[in-house]
Design a protein around this nucleic acid. Structure first.
Length: 596
RNA sequence: GCCUUCGUGGCCCAGUGGAUAGGGCGUCCGCCUCCGGAGCGGAAGGCCGCGGGUUCGAGUCCCGCCGAAGGCACCA
């Protein structure tokens, strides 16, 4: 019997108790939702296989003592199929012990459902637009964006496993000032001039500049000969680089697509799939920005002041109004955000019921205006728009944080990370941490190519189970002979309980937007499996003569050389663990090797 | 000043109101003539930042304080 089935049973019993007048002042409409009756795995095995706190939660509403109320539940639970024993303990916990056959039923379920085991469809019918990474196409993805790639992609997989339709989206900021800075940095590099004071620097700039020159040359254009305009100097007298010239434009036109494809290559190598690569520029080219502003104007949320056009975001809870068209006639960055959200919600192809944004902590100040904008369109903030703020990645050296900057040349890119520890370890270590916590990446650790990563512990459990299968095949063990009721040892019980918890973990990971829970679950399952492997043999091995004479020979025989029905049951348990680990690793985008 | 997030053994982290707070790294002691030791068993190590509150019950929720990171533009 699964924990979910137990929850339902307890809910049903609560209804019965009310109907039969045994539940005091409790009424059906006072019952919390059925999923609040969750049963949990007690930490102490003496408390049974599963425990429910239903009686404690409801006792007050019933006007009864928790312990007494729990006894009413216990009396009815005892009669249910598959339940071996029920005890009321402590302040009113209902502790349930299952028949071993009932506990082991999960094995057949896992093997029957395969890759589907644990999935559900409670988010079915909803289209979730998940935007993540969205780093500017002015350079390679650095470590911060890499974290969102790992977390975001796993998030998408987890949401899909909960039945949602997910559109994975990457937003290219390919319009405006930062692209100009990129382009003039390339011009400067191409001519061997100093990097503009607000420009980008690094080996990749020289490389892109070189490629642009070659590409233009192949098209019969001598790009370095095109018109140039000096952009002047900044307040400190530092050069600002190339002005608004034909040469800069030619560099921009050719270099930005190069960065697009480099980023797309990196994402592909990192096993991150995007369904939509959205270009900010298209919002302007297609008139979406003007359309969105007009829509807000229609609703009375646009006004003119000091020569600029403003969005009255304070009407919807923001702490100040926001400029969307500057007094010089240029659009502020936020104008595109308005159009983009509007587009996500109302586009012809897979319009979003929920637009989820994954942003770095340096963007948290945007939440107010974004939610205000959502409300201004008549949508529900927090429902139609959800913003997940993740903490930043600190790069450490000698135990101290180092400031990453393209200028200092110490930027850690996604490719650096992959080269150092590989895709599996990179994705796993970035996705296993709650994104609400900052994460530290140690440069020395990257350089050491260390195997010190929990991903190997999980992968090893999978590889080990595959090895058991190979050995069992060589020994001609028949799975059909299995009697799952013989999975009755303490180690069996721990593994079975872990397997049974996977559906709940997966659902929580989706509802809480917390894919790191998948990783921690896998570590728990792998631990239970490794322990089990150490005490219960699958492929039988005869006892030695000395062992035969020992007082505990019978226990040893069960552990090392059990009867065929038990051996086969263990093999199926082994297979079920293998399946669930593979399912979980798939959600993290990590491979499940059959040998290491 | 205001806003967001975080504070859990020496270090890194898990724990969406439940029982004696878990795991990894590190330290110490054990375990391969036996399905792979990338593993397993055991030990030491904790006022869950501090103080109030709510609750049958608080690491978890609320308030205040302390500390850390980030953010508060007609920049993008």
């Amino acid at each position: 019997m699964s924990p979910e089935a137990l929850s339902e049973l307890i809910y049903t019993i609560a209804q019965d108790l009310i109907a039969s007048g045994q539940a005091g002042t409790l009424t059906v409409d006072l019952l919390p939702p059925a999923d609040k009756f969750a049963v949990m795995r007690p930490k102490d095995r003496a408390h049974g296989d599963w425990a429910s706190n239903a009686a404690m939660q409801l006792a007050k509403k019933a006007g009864m003592k928790p312990h007494d109320f729990a006894e009413l539940f216990a009396a009815r639970l005892k009669d249910a199929d598959g339940i071996k024993d029920v005890e009321v303990a402590g302040p009113g916990f209902i502790n349930i012990t299952l028949d071993s056959a009932s506990a082991a039923a999960v094995v057949d379920q896992v093997l029957a459902e395969g890759t589907k085991f644990g999935t559900n469809d409670h988010l079915a019918g909803r289209t979730l637009n998940l935007e993540f990474v969205s780093a500017n196409p002015t350079g390679p993805i650095h470590i911060g964006g890499t974290r969102w790639a790992a977390v975001g992609d796993s998030m998408a997989r987890v949401l899909e496993a909960n039945g949602a339709e997910v559109v994975r989206e990457y937003y290219f900021n390919d319009h405006g000032e930062q692209i100009n800075r990129f382009a003039k940095s390339l011009v400067a590099a191409a001519h061997g001039e100093p990097t503009p004071s607000d420009g980008y620097k690094g080996a990749y700039i020289d490389e892109i500049a070189r490629r642009v020159i070659v590409e233009a040359n192949a098209d019969g254009i001598d790009i370095l000969d095109l018109e140039r305009i000096d952009g002047g100097t900044d307040a400190d007298g530092e050069p600002l680089g190339e002005g608004d010239s034909a040469q800069r434009e030619e560099f921009r036109k050719r270099a930005v697509p190069m960065m697009f494809s480099e980023i797309q290559e990196s994402m592909k190598e990192f096993r991150v799939r995007f369904d939509v690569w959205f270009h900010e520029n298209s919002l302007y080219a297609d008139g979406e920005v003007d359309k969105a502003i007009a829509a807000l104007r229609e609703r009375g949320d646009i006004f003119e002041k000091d020569g600029a056009t403003w969005f009255a975001s304070t009407k919807h809870g923001d702490d100040k109004d926001r400029v969307i068209v500057k007094s010089d006639g240029n659009y502020a960055y936020f104008a595109a955000d308005i159009a983009y959200y509007n587009n996500k919600r109302h586009r012809a192809d897979h319009p979003a019921d929920v637009a989820i944004y994954m942003l770095g902590a340096d963007h948290h100040g945007y939440i107010g205006r974004m939610m205000a904008m959502c409300a201004a369109f008549g949508d529900q903030p927090g429902e139609n728009m959800q913003i997940l703020i993740g903490q930043l990645v600190n790069v450490m050296k000698d135990g101290k944080p180092v400031r990453m900057s393209k200028r200092a040349g110490n930027v850690v890119t996604i490719d650096d990370l992959i080269d150092a520890i590989g895709v599996d370890a990179s994705r796993y270590s970035l996705a296993r941490t709650d994104y609400n916590s900052p994460v530290d990446i140690d440069l020395d650790l990257l350089a050491s190519h260390s195997n010190d990563n929990p991903v190997y512990y999980v992968q090893y459990a999978h590889a080990r189970s595959c090895n058991v299968d190979r050995n069992a095949a060589a020994a001609n063990i028949e799975r059909d002979a299995a009697d799952l009721a013989l999975l009755d040892t303490a180690a069996d019980g721990e593994v079975l309980a872990q397997l049974a918890q996977w559906p709940a973990v997966l659902r929580e990971a989706g509802d809480l937007r917390a894919p790191h829970r998948v990783a921690h679950y896998l570590e728990d399952l792998a631990a239970a499996y490794h322990k089990w492997y150490n005490v219960e043999r699958v492929v039988p091995m005869a006892l030695t003569e000395a062992e035969e004479r020992r007082d505990d020979a019978e226990a040893l025989r069960i552990a090392k050389c059990p009867e065929p029905a038990r051996t086969a049951a263990r093999l199926k348990l082994n297979d079920a663990v293998q399946q669930v680990i593979a399912n979980g690793l798939e959600l993290l985008g990590v491979s499940a090797p059959d040998k290491m």
